[in-house]
């Protein structure tokens, strides 16, 4: 460990920008970004499943509000949504004295709310599309077994739909990681925020942003790797035989 430390210090001694101090900024940014993106995706999935089922409902009072929600949140930029949640919420009278202020005082939760609303809208549409495209034969077979609609949804339609939605959902995860870069505009020290800080402090845009771009690249590749593996396992039955 000591040796590693010495080696590390020596490696850093040659430059003025990437000191241990700035690297700790980047590390903090990485942790914040991963936390933010992971949490919003997790909440997004939990919310999107019932919404996707509701979106395909025959009842208009269920279907239409969900459609309106996904339409609005997919139709407006995430940055605007973030601004509205962060700066807009303080225009509600008395919010500072209510219990909600505990949540909205920090920048993290407004950003998490905005990101979750956004990714939920996209994930809902992805799942909805997959559910709608379930092969007729699978549904007929389930009916022939005498399954109720609930049981059929749980055992046949959803598992099948999730598998088919996987590639599109993998894209959404990567998009969300990249979209999270806007969090820095509401003072969150995520990866981009750290890069901005280093840029502003050393007037070195190239170094600051290239470095952060490489970190994003590593994250993206890790996500892609995980989804490749998942697809290989879960979509094995869809591949041509013998490949």
């Amino acid at each position: 460990m000591e040796q590693l430390n010495g080696w590390f210090t020596e490696l850093l001694s040659g430059n003025t920008i990437f000191t241990a101090n700035t690297l700790s900024f980047y590390w903090g940014g990485l942790v914040t970004t991963v936390q933010l993106v992971f949490l919003c995706l997790l909440l997004g999935i939990v919310l999107a499943v019932p919404l996707a089922i509701g979106r395909g409902s025959k009842r208009r009072w269920i279907k239409l509000p969900i459609y309106a929600y996904t339409y609005v949140f997919r139709g407006t930029p995430l940055l605007i949504q973030l601004y509205l949640v962060y700066y807009g919420v303080v225009f509600f009278d008395g919010i500072q004295d209510s219990i909600f202020w505990v949540v909205f005082k920090q920048a993290f939760f407004p950003a998490l709310i905005a990101f979750t609303l956004n990714t939920t809208a996209y994930t809902t549409e992805i799942f909805h599309g997959a559910i709608k495209n379930t092969a007729k034969g699978e549904i007929e077979a389930a009916r022939a077994y005498g399954m109720s609609r609930k049981l059929m949804m749980r055992r046949i339609i959803l598992p099948s739909a999730f598998r088919r939605a996987l590639p599109a959902y993998g894209n959404e995860v990567i998009f969300m990681l990249h979209a999270s870069a806007v969090a820095s505009v509401v003072t969150i020290m995520d990866l981009t925020g750290a890069a901005y800080y280093v840029y502003a402090r050393f007037y070195a845009p190239f170094d600051a942003f290239i470095f952060v771009a490489l970190i994003y690249l590593c994250l993206t590749f890790s996500i892609m790797f995980v989804f490749r593996r998942l697809e290989k396992r879960l979509l094995a039955h869809l591949r041509p035989r013998g490949s």
Binding site: Y87, V90, K105, A107
Partner: peptide
């Protein structure tokens, strides 16, 4: 320390109580 992109945002958040 909260760092903002513009001084207008700083003033907004001072007034909002953040």
């Amino acid at each position: 320390i909260n760092r903002y992109g513009s001084s207008q945002d700083v003033v907004n958040d001072l007034k909002s109580g953040r």
